[in-house]
Lab assay of single mutants.
Amino acid sequence: MASQGTKRSYEQMETDGERQNATEIRASVGKMIGGIGRFYIQMCTELKLSDYEGRLIQNSLTIERMVLSAFDERRNKYLEEHPSAGKDPKKTGGPIYRRVNGKWMRELILYDKEEIRRIWRQANNGDDATAGLTHMMIWHSNLNDATYQRTRALVRTGMDPRMCSLMQGSTLPRRSGAAGAAVKGVGTMVMELVRMIKRGINDRNFWRGENGRKTRIAYERMCNILKGKFQTAAQKAMMDQVRESRNPGNAEFEDLTFLARSALILRGSVAHKSCLPACVYGPAVASGYDFEREGYSLVGIDPFRLLQNSQVYSLIRPNENPAHKSQLVWMACHSAAFEDLRVLSFIKGTKVLPRGKLSTRGVQIASNENMETMESSTLELRSRYWAIRTRSGGNTNQQRASAGQISIQPTFSVQRNLPFDRTTIMAAFNGNTEGRTSDMRTEIIRMMESARPEDVSFQGRGVFELSDEKAASPIVPSFDMSNEGSYFFGDNAEEYDN
């Protein structure tokens, strides 16, 4: 783990906690998980779902989305002020799938948001429990990260689609708070800032007046979040320049895209947490497990152990491969979309394939898809080993990566060399080191050039047997250095459309 220093740990961010010791953190995270579980059980009762239907990941996603929508204050306010045809701002819903006479049927349900809020609060001892809501947002974000390569979004903001390893959390809503900021990748933060800068260039009043003052505060806050992700002084200094700019424009845009590229080699610290679907927490609570009393951590053995003992089902389209669908969801559960496939294969105990080789589309089923041909199958979400999630980018030494994705962002704290394609990355730096950030740029390029592919990161860190909950005997895996390590390699994943 990167030293926490003055930073709060993510469990504290996750639970809005002030400084807590490890036991208190485990208890408050457990409380959050228990609340999600209780809410899910109650919703299944309301909807009269069978046990099997309640364990269907598509039903879980609909129920999670309903509660997130019920608590989305800004959108609710907007919907009330701008009524649109056929949208009731006070209601929320989605597809629920039921097994009827041996076939899967889709039923569109509609609930009062007020009623959903009441059920959620009741499951969370009367609190709004925003930490639990954020947790579900991060699960949705991790699922998107594993399912889609955001080529269009990258290109629109002047970045290269091969930089997708920097895009963790790119679909997280803005209201996801400190826990959300911690899991956002460098590219995601750059993209958010670039969008602001572009608006400022096109709209003279963007930075002016009372609204402009708020915009400015948001801009500086985002700059500080991004600065905190960088691990070298030169990158941090460049972020200070971007933040202090009187009138952010093209120079800042250039600096930010430069920094994003540099992060492929001088990786930023991005938190990883295993956020599971509500249909995993519900049955665990129903079986009598007391998360608050037992304590829970999002970055240790607990999620692995929970998945070892969970039964989750998914709808499967006619030509999809259930094992591939399982891999997709497994990666999402562990926030591992940008991790090295060699490491993932070792931990999972079966070969993890790149996205383009998977015969599976996303987990969600569109409303126009034919239910007649839908089957369902068990998702295999178990693992051979477990490993500690990392909050750091690993040290800054790398190795060759593949054509589709030119770097990785480690999820697990496991000893290995970190793949990246130096030639491709360095070719993108057209040696432009003039301007006010020239000395920093020169320094950053120097550090990137001296990074050695064969150097090892996370020295001495290994994986653990599932029986080793105290992480007492690390097993340090050895990897084939020459092997392909990137998930979005030469990829044809669908595009994420909101």
Rank of each mutant, 00 (worst) to 15 (best):
M1C: 13
A2Y: 01
A2S: 08
S3A: 11
Q4N: 10
G5I: 00
G5P: 08
E18I: 14
I25L: 06
A27Q: 10
V29I: 14
K31Q: 04
G35V: 12
G37N: 06
G37D: 06
I41H: 00
D51L: 14
G54R: 08
L61D: 02
M66Y: 02
A70Q: 03
E73F: 06
Y78F: 13
L79G: 07
L79W: 11
H82P: 03
H82F: 13
D88W: 03
P89S: 08
T92C: 09
Y97M: 02
M105D: 04
R106K: 11
R106F: 11
I109S: 14
Y111T: 08
D112V: 11
E114Y: 14
E115F: 03
I119Q: 06
R121E: 01
A123W: 02
N125Y: 08
A129F: 02
G132D: 12
N142W: 03
N144R: 00
N144F: 07
D145V: 12
A146L: 01
Y148L: 02
Q149L: 08
M159C: 01
L166F: 00
M167K: 09
S170E: 08
L172V: 12
S176E: 12
G177Q: 10
A182V: 09
V183M: 02
G185T: 10
E192A: 08
E192K: 11
R195M: 04
R195Q: 02
M196A: 01
I197L: 13
G200R: 09
I201W: 05
R204L: 08
F206K: 07
E210L: 05
E210S: 05
K214L: 14
I217V: 12
I217T: 07
E220K: 13
M222Q: 15
N224D: 13
N224E: 11
I225S: 13
F230Y: 12
M238R: 01
Q241S: 07
V242W: 08
E244I: 05
N247R: 10
E254S: 03
L256R: 06
T257D: 05
A260C: 15
L264H: 11
P277T: 14
Y289S: 06
D290E: 13
E292A: 05
E292G: 13
Y296W: 12
Y296P: 04
V299R: 07
V299K: 07
G300Q: 02
G300D: 02
I301T: 14
D302L: 00
P303E: 03
F304R: 00
F304H: 13
R305I: 12
N309V: 13
S314P: 06
I316Y: 04
E320Q: 12
E320N: 07
A323G: 15
Q327P: 07
V329M: 12
W330L: 04
C333N: 08
C333K: 00
S335K: 00
E339T: 01
R342Y: 14
P354W: 04
G362R: 12
I365D: 03
A366T: 10
T373N: 13
M374L: 09
S377N: 10
T378V: 01
E380A: 05
L381N: 12
R382F: 05
S383I: 10
R389V: 04
Q399I: 10
I406E: 06
I408E: 00
P410S: 10
T411C: 08
F412L: 12
S413Q: 05
V414W: 04
Q415F: 02
Q415D: 02
L418D: 05
E434V: 09
S438N: 15
M440I: 06
R441Y: 07
E443T: 09
R446T: 11
E449Q: 12
S450Q: 15
E454R: 07
E454A: 08
F458N: 01
G460V: 04
R461Y: 03
R461T: 10
F464A: 03
F464M: 05
S467Y: 04
K470D: 08
S473D: 02
D480G: 11
M481P: 05
M481K: 10
E484V: 13
S486N: 08
F488E: 08
D491W: 06
N492V: 01
E495K: 12
Y496D: 10
D497W: 07
